[in-house]
Amino acid sequence: MFTRVAVGRAGVVREVRAAGPLMAALRAPATARGPWLTAVLNAGAARRGGGRPVAIVVEPHAQGRPEAVAFLTLRRRGLATHVTMLGDGVGPVPGGRPPARLLARDGRAAELLAVGICDLLNSLRGPRRLSLTGLPLGDPTARALAAQLPDGLIANARSSGTVDGLDGVGEVARSQESRDLERLLPAVLAREPDRRRRDFLRAAARLHAAIGQVELAVLPGGEQPRAALLTLVDGADRWPWWGWTDVGGLDPGMGAPVVALTDPAHGWP
């Protein structure tokens, strides 16, 4: 097996595309697939402090199809470099399920990916801190990493998501058509006060609408909607993403466990 590292937006974009078959084979969630990660990379490139994207790739030979990939971000905070999952802290993420993945086809690939991540950490100058959040329970790469990091800690938490009950409060208009999204999205996103979050929602929704993987549900009400919800759609699977309501119908619900792997700052003088 061969392990290499791609640094920077252009290189990571290529690795995201190359990892498409692996993402599909592992049934990675929408938030760990190409369209979402592309929106994340575009958002990072558009603002200062977005961090430096990195892809660690394990493949059978140079330029072969990947057997494992980790998409990460390096951010300088003071003297330290913080290493996180690509997409962590960028825009609203749907809740109720683990949104992140350390992609590995099998246990051997997961072990090699963990070694590659450790090599990356050891190559960084100055203090560094690792924080990989949003992973599924029992992630094999996270287990291998924790075994190799003396201070590595795995913690579990119960996630919460949104329950779509809008059909119970009125006549809801639902559409996966790009033209409907373009027409309604400005009024829907006007309820998001944070400009960066609003920009990411718009970009990510458009990318997923282009491939038929987002639904916009709106409860009409005079000049402005009374409720709205964006849902990520993958076949029969529906994952409520972001929305708001003035009349109810969007309630919190308990979700699946999520895992975080942290390794405290090392390398202080």
Rank of each mutant, 00 (worst) to 15 (best):
E67C: 04
R27F: 11
R9P: 01
D167K: 12
G116M: 02
R97F: 14
G134T: 09
R191S: 12
V57Y: 01
P240N: 10
R238V: 07
L132M: 06
A30S: 12
R195D: 15
T133P: 02
V188E: 03
D180P: 00
D119M: 03
E223W: 02
G87L: 11
R202A: 15
E192P: 05
A24F: 07
G116S: 05
R9M: 01
G78C: 03
A80G: 04
R198G: 02
T245W: 10
G49W: 05
R191G: 06
F200S: 05
L102N: 04
W242E: 13
P60Y: 00
A6R: 11
R143D: 13
G20R: 15
G34P: 07
V188W: 03
G221L: 10
G116F: 00
P140E: 06
A28G: 04
D88K: 04
V83H: 06
V163D: 13
R108Q: 13
R179H: 15
E111P: 03
L86K: 08
L145G: 09
E215K: 02
A46P: 04
G138H: 01
R48G: 12
D234Y: 03
V12H: 08
G126T: 01
R47S: 09
R198Y: 03
L216V: 05
P94Q: 04
E177F: 03
R198I: 08
G49T: 09
L121Q: 03
L112H: 13
G165I: 00
V69Q: 09
P99I: 08
P92I: 12
L185F: 00
A28E: 11
G44V: 06
T245Q: 05
R108C: 09
R75C: 03
V163I: 15
L166W: 03
A210L: 07
L132S: 03
R174L: 12
L72T: 06
P240M: 09
P252D: 12
L26V: 12
A114N: 10
N156I: 14
T73I: 08
P98N: 11
G138T: 02
T38F: 13
S178C: 03
Q213D: 07
L261T: 04
G152N: 02
R196L: 14
P92H: 13
P94H: 04
A157P: 00
G44L: 13
A10C: 05
I56H: 09
V214P: 02
A228T: 09
G96R: 05
W239C: 07
V13F: 06
G267I: 08
V58F: 09
A217T: 01
G87Q: 11
V93A: 11
G152I: 10
A62G: 05
G87H: 07
L229Q: 09
G152P: 08
A80L: 14
P220Q: 10
F200D: 07
T231A: 03
D119K: 04
T245S: 15
A203H: 12
G267E: 06
R52W: 08
P94D: 11
A265I: 13
G50L: 00
R183S: 14
S160P: 05
G168E: 08
G170K: 09
D246S: 12
P136Y: 02
L166R: 06
G168W: 01
R197W: 04
G222S: 13
Q148R: 15
R52V: 15
L72E: 10
R14S: 14
W239G: 06
I211H: 07
G34S: 15
G168L: 07
D151R: 15
L189Q: 09
L124F: 10
M23S: 15
G152T: 07
V57A: 00
S178P: 14
V7Y: 02
F71W: 13
